[in-house]
């Protein structure tokens, strides 16, 4: 177990170094001068020079990079010129919103996806299986933001069940919070439900063909017990490994969904930064989300070792 952990942590560290390097180098992709985004064409060379100094762009690339690493090691993601505040503070302020959105969506997706997958596998090739698979495939094929708009149209504009958008903090008004987060979370979960349902079904079908299921049958265990005690724990091993991917997809999806439902989360901050070419926000935001993704996957891997005792030995 210790060896597994060390190896995994070392791998994550290397990726982390690369991720931060990539976040930093997004600025190199810009055709022309990054300052052009902030200054109009009438700017004097002195103004451009001052901004370049402010952004640190006057330094050699190598020095810029060292400075970047020096700063992020202290948790400082830089200073947004447009927001005129620290990027770290701006992200942390909006983090709870995005996290609550993503985690509710994750819970919904896992609950619905795994249940649907089990129902499908247990009824392999019968109508519940076909219904689940068809719905799952539609879920995978619907653009999430479009679905969000449709839900707004139906439940907010036509029926008035939910607000059309905006966010109510949990501490202020728990019921209002639920109302403001429910539709976005549902929308965000739909694609993942399809994905998880298909994974669970495939994995469950494979497991149900294994010898130890026959052993369980030979023990005379109830069908339900066989599914839940022998089938599911084994089938969930591969499903768990994709939970990390799902978490990443949810973070990405949240960026779009926050936009649809006007939710002031990290995603909207970053999109705002991208659209206004606020580089510290882009760099810091990308790095931040990537680090969350890596952390989630690390946790998943460790969980994985607990679910599947075979991994621990290796």
């Amino acid at each position: 177990m210790a060896r597994f952990l060390t190896k995994r942590l070392a791998g994550a560290f290397v990726v982390l170094v690369l991720v931060s390097l990539m976040s930093f180098s997004i600025i190199w992709l810009v055709p022309g001068d990054p300052t052009a985004a902030f200054l109009d064409t009438s700017a004097t060379p002195e103004q451009v020079e001052r901004l370049r100094r402010e952004l640190g762009l006057d330094q050699p690339i190598f020095i810029q990079m060292l400075e970047w690493y020096g700063r992020i090691l202290q948790g400082d993601l830089g200073h947004s010129i447009l927001l005129n505040r620290s990027v770290t503070a701006a992200i942390l302020e909006r983090l709870p919103v995005t996290l609550s959105l993503a985690s509710i969506a994750l819970a919904l997706a896992l609950l619905a996806g795994i249940s649907a997958g089990i129902v499908a596998a247990v009824n392999h090739n019968r109508w519940p299986d076909q219904v689940v698979m068809t719905v799952a495939l539609f879920g995978l094929s619907v653009p999430d933001f479009w679905l969000g708009i449709m839900l707004i149209l139906l439940f907010a504009v036509k029926l008035g069940f939910f607000p059309t958008g905006g966010y109510v903090p949990l501490g202020e008004d728990p019921l209002g919070w639920l109302g403001s987060i429910f539709m976005p979370a549902m929308t965000l979960a739909v694609i993942q439900v399809g994905f998880i349902a298909r994974m669970t079904r495939a994995s469950m079908l494979e497991i149900l063909n294994q010898d130890f299921i026959r052993t369980a049958d030979a023990k005379g265990l109830k069908r339900m017990d066989i599914m839940l005690r022998h089938g599911l724990p084994n089938a969930l091993v591969p499903v768990l490994t994709v939970a990390g991917i799902v978490a990443g997809a949810l973070l990405g999806g949240a960026v779009i969904i926050e936009q649809v439902f006007s939710i002031p989360g990290v995603g909207r901050l970053i999109i705002g930064g991208i659209l206004s070419r606020d580089y510290p926000v882009i760099q810091g935001g990308l790095l931040f989300l990537a680090v969350i993704y890596l952390a989630v996957n690390l946790v998943v891997d460790i969980l994985y070792a607990f679910v599947d005792p075979r991994v621990r030995l290796e």
């Binding site: 010898d211 130890f212 026959r214 052993t215 369980a216 022998h230 724990p233 084994n234 091993v237 005792p309």
Partner: peptide, 8 residues
């Protein structure tokens, strides 16, 4: 090898 549940 295969007749026993590997995670139990």
């Amino acid at each position: 090898m295969t007749a026993l549940n590997p995670v139990m």
